[in-house]
Computed example of a mutant assay.
Amino acid sequence: MLKRWLIGIFICFSLAISASQGADLYRVLVPVDDQTKESREAGIEIAFSKMLIKLTGNSQILQSPQLKPFLIDPKAFLDSVGFNQLSDSAAKKNIATGLDVKFDRPLVDKLLKQAQLPIIPAVRPKFLVWLMVDDIAQGRRVLDESTSKQLQSGDHSFELVEAFERAMQARSISYFLPSYDLEDQLSLSVKDAWAMKIDPLNNASQRYDADGWFALRVFKASDGQIRGAWAYQEAGKRQMNDFYGDSMTDLIDASVDQVLDTLLQSHTYVPQLETDKLLVQIDGVLSYKNYQMALRGLEQLELVEALQLYSVNKGELVVAIEINGSVELLHAELIRTGLVESYLSSDNRSIGRLTYNWVGQ
């Protein structure tokens, strides 16, 4: 009885954690210049992009040809939005105001499912990260969990850890640093770690319970420029790249995006569609002649195998289509007919549909 009771508590606790994690994935706090309408509109656009990146694990998701045909006005996905003060660690470039944007989970999930985009589950992977730094005071060293918490503000290492923490939080991905105790030091010297030697790094990572690992090294050159490199091994494939620039935050953001875009691919799944029919919405079909032209134009498309009228309401024509091919090819073929043009709808009823304006004569 006690065992069953404990299992029940564990399950409820696990579900609560999962639900909490899931809810946070659809909420984004972004810095804005002020509380004007223009800043609010721009903030919603940025928040929408960051939210999709968190969910899909792909920093280039807005450029995906699978997503583009389904994109509508981000405001159609809103659950709530309001201005908040940024915390000291979140504020950048002396901007103290943040826009707290929460998106409607069912509507966003509907978009991702219809576009057939890979999604990271709510219980997300956790990575081991080897952070190496070289500074005048202490030379080259591997940062561990203990020393990373003792760094002082203004220190080069502190700047690295703070920038890295923000970048990982923006992607909603957990990580931890190694203990770098005697066992680690015997299998991975500071020299080998700094040289980004994959085999020693991979061997030292095996003792840790992680879903993957990557390494990042940073130092400040004599000219004041920040230089560094990252490396990882995933499914037997090795990758390494250098970076340099003036802004620690920008460099770490870009490096984390490049690494996670690859590492997270093996942790995603593609949601299954409940039907193979696609809804195409054409607005501005105001006459019976245009209605016939629109249906005839759709029927003549090479990719269309079958179509069925879904609804007609005040100039809005919606057709359910079965296609033989990809959505992005159908979208391109529709645009080439010259009968319609793509547009961003602000109506959440349009989520998961291909939306167009009628321009045919």
Rank of each mutant, 00 (worst) to 15 (best):
V259H: 04
G297L: 03
S287C: 03
S247A: 05
R296G: 11
E234L: 11
L286D: 15
K314L: 11
D242P: 13
I252Q: 04
H267R: 14
I252R: 07
L279P: 05
Q239P: 00
E299N: 14
Y291S: 08
M240F: 08
Y244D: 14
V304R: 05
Q233V: 12
K289N: 11
Y232R: 09
D242E: 14
E234N: 14
T268R: 06
T262N: 14
L317V: 00
A231T: 15
Q300P: 02
G284H: 06
D257P: 06
Y288W: 14
G245E: 03
I226W: 15
D257G: 04
E234K: 07
L295H: 12
R296C: 03
K289T: 12
V270C: 01
H267Q: 15
G236N: 06
A320Y: 05
L251D: 04
E316W: 05
V256Y: 02
V318F: 05
Q233E: 15
G297S: 07
P271L: 04
I282Y: 04
L273W: 04
A306C: 01
G315L: 02
L309P: 08
K314C: 02
S311E: 13
N241F: 10
G315F: 01
L317I: 00
A235W: 01
S255P: 01
Q300G: 11
Q233N: 12
L264D: 02
F243Y: 06
G297Y: 03
V319I: 08
Y310S: 14
K289V: 11
G236I: 03
Q308M: 10
N241P: 00
Q281E: 14
A306G: 07
A235P: 01
A235F: 03
L279R: 13
I252E: 01
